[in-house]
């Protein structure tokens, strides 16, 4: 339980390796929780920029989703990122969208 707000704690999101330590033990390279959050935000931003959004870590507990027009939303995990981006941007964030996949591939090739 959170000492400040009294909220009951929830199990971590399935994408976070810290909440599934057993599944990710024995990593070849050193891996920290903080580094993982940074990696995740960096990857999400590669996708979000095509929708006009940016994601940044907030106090290592949540993420702030910001649109290029200044709208913001606080989200807890990856699942919430996409729902919030669709709600704020009023358009679908579809990983199967041809235009998105082409843009991501072109970005990667240009790096």
């Amino acid at each position: 339980m959170c000492g400040l707000c009294g909220m009951l704690g929830r199990p971590g999101h399935w994408t976070e390796t810290a909440t599934n330590a057993e599944a990710f033990q024995g990593r070849a390279r050193s891996h920290t929780w903080h580094r993982e959050r940074q990696d995740r935000a960096r990857l999400v931003n590669r996708v979000l920029r095509h929708y006009g959004f940016n994601l940044s870590d907030w106090a290592a507990t949540s993420f702030v989703l910001r649109s290029h027009t200044g709208q913001t939303s606080l989200v807890d995990n990856l699942t919430e990122v996409w729902a919030a981006a669709e709600a704020l941007g009023k358009r679908d964030c579809d990983p199967l969208d041809e235009d998105l996949l082409t843009a991501l591939s072109e970005d990667e090739a240009a790096r």
Partner: peptide
């Protein structure tokens, strides 16, 4: 991380 980004986005949509 990339798999998590992809699968959460796929399942959201």
């Amino acid at each position: 991380s990339a798999f998590g980004v992809w699968m959460t986005m796929l399942l959201n949509r």
